[in-house]
Amino acid sequence: MSEHISPAPQRCGAPAFYPDAGLPVHAGLGLKPEHFRQILETLPELGFFEVHAENYMVDGGPFHHYLTRIREHYPLSIHGVGLSIGGDTALDARHLDRLARLLDRYQPASFSEHLAWASHGDVFLNDLLPLPYIEQKLERVCTHIDQVQTHLKRAMLLENPATYVEFAESTMDETVFISEVIQRSGCGLLLDINNIYVSCVNHNRDPYAYIRALPLAAVGEIHLAGFAREQDANGDLLLIDSHGSAVAEAVWQLYEYALRLVGPKATLIERDADIPPLDILLAESRQAERLLQAASNNVQIKEARA
């Protein structure tokens, strides 16, 4: 597989930001309120926790109480869902300020957001909506990422989306669009393996080729999650990025493939619906940790041979 290892990142003219190296190369878990107490009582072996930024944009109370204490024991990744980086509307300055305060308070090892839009005008839709891949959107996304990185004084990771429709007006592939964004803005890549699988099934693409087409040297974190199965109007399979079940076998296989190309990277198990007991999620994180270890052994063998 060595022929697929990506070249060094090209950053002509990009600002002097680089993907966070902060997250430890281990498996982590999405932090859920129903697990707060058990985590503090048992301090399970985990590389990091990840939270959705917007859930902690409140003044005080139990959410901050528990996150503060959990943060004392684990590195943290803050994952935004509300910036609307792919939006036609300008970034919301108040929201950027809230984000800056949150990052200042918790000093996360990584901050990430989505290649999507969620707001239109002053309406927030609470969904990650798709955008056509055209030059005008590319420029807008780069401008927005620039504003975010400048305001937050750090590089962010951008997550590849899960989508259900495509746009007739798109002039470039999603992977080309993402590669351009990363090269122009200097942000890193949050490689969401489940999103790749979901989108590639939904649009009849080869997920392995999709991964190879991405700028893998920019990967700062990997996401794994479960999907739901539906059908489109022709009765063909339509996968939904539901985060409501265990990581599927096909996604584990794609993850192993990605690790061979990217090398071991901090990996998150995401679960946002039908939250199971913590032990079930810890078992999934151990599965990711085993694959990370194997990937890391492979790297050592390659280095020894070189």
Partner: peptide, 16 residues
Amino acid sequence: LTSWNGSDPQVRYAVY
């Protein structure tokens, strides 16, 4: 909006 198999994109848009 388009879909690879020519299916009615309205069903896919309904996910959003």
